[in-house]
């Protein structure tokens, strides 16, 4: 038999099987977090309104609302948004472990057969992108189910609810704006942060360092509104669509694409000199 010309695609298949399909429990938890978030939202709405309908985009706004810009003062304490931080701490935990644990275990056998170190790295990059895509698809599917339950038009916003419960004035926002800042922006930015985490873990050869760096980034983003603190783009409360001194979605997407490209390039260089050792305990 001839050597397989498509070994890269089999590597990708392997990563999809091991890193996604066999990790279904992690995606199950994702669904649970989105369900909890939607239930909290429904509960909060019921305090203000009776029999009011909310749509898919209202759920999106609620989940990614984050917190308003923090201005330090003696009477205002700094707080981190609960569901938002839970969602993203879990998100980055979920995408932290697999590549490094793979290369120190079963992945060694895969690596030897792949013949090229770069294939292993590129396959892991694609795994990350696909995994993040599935994460959001599951989340949005849950929110669509909740929308079905309320009987509201999918892509119509309820400005009254957003003003009273989410505390974001959406009356001037168009549906496509919310798609851009509430769906595309979190997808790209969270992927960029996940790539940064992956590259830190890979360079330091430690899962802990990558994760701690990302926790610091998220907390720093909640504390300070700055375009380089990427966590700000994951909070609609910090977006200039809703507040004048907020961050721009376009800037966020450009920075994220640069971060993703740099991470892929650094990883490609690193894998060429990486010593594959025994399993990490």
């Amino acid at each position: 038999m001839k050597r397989n010309k498509y070994s890269f695609f089999y590597l990708l298949k392997y990563d999809f099987l091991v890193g996604v399909m066999l990790s279904w429990k992690k995606y199950f938890v994702t669904a649970c977090i989105f369900i909890i978030s939607a239930l909290f939202f429904n509960q909060a709405i019921s305090v203000h309104f009776l029999n009011i309908k909310v749509g898919f985009l209202d759920y999106i706004i609620e989940i990614f609302k984050g917190v308003p810009i923090y201005i330090p003062s003696s009477y205002k304490t700094f707080s981190i948004p609960g569901i938002w931080i839970l969602l993203f701490l879990y998100f980055f935990y979920m995408f932290n472990c697999y590549p490094l644990s793979d290369i120190h275990s079963y992945g060694q056998q895969v690596l030897l057969r792949s013949q090229k170190r770069i294939y292993w790295w590129l396959s892991k990059c694609l795994w990350l992108a696909i995994g993040i895509f599935i994460f959001y698809v599951i989340g949005y599917f849950i929110l669509l189910l909740f929308t079905l339950g309320t009987g509201h038009t999918f892509f119509e916003m309820n400005h009254e609810v957003n003003a009273a419960v989410t505390k974001i004035n959406t009356s001037n926002a168009r549906t496509q704006d919310i798609f851009y800042v509430g769906i595309l922006l979190p997808f790209i930015v969270s992927m960029a942060i996940a790539f940064i985490q992956l590259i830190i873990s890979f360079i330091t050869d430690s899962l802990i360092f990558g994760y701690i760096a990302i926790i610091i980034l998220l907390v720093a983003s909640a504390y300070k509104c700055h375009p380089l603190l990427l966590g700000n783009y994951l909070m609609l409360n910090r977006n200039n669509l809703f507040i004048s001194d907020g961050v721009s979605a376009n800037t966020g997407i450009i920075i994220s694409i640069i971060c993703i490209a740099l991470s892929i390039a650094i990883g490609a260089k690193k894998i060429q000199h990486y010593d594959v050792m025994a399993s990490k305990k």
Binding site: K2, R3, N4, S7, Y10, L17, V110, R113
Partner: peptide, 30 residues
Amino acid sequence: IGALIESPGFIDAYSGFKNLKLLAEIKNII
């Protein structure tokens, strides 16, 4: 090259044959 270095790591949820088949697909020479 074929190697067994330290304890063999395989996918827990798969049978022995399925584990080997997944590995063999990468080179696809057997």
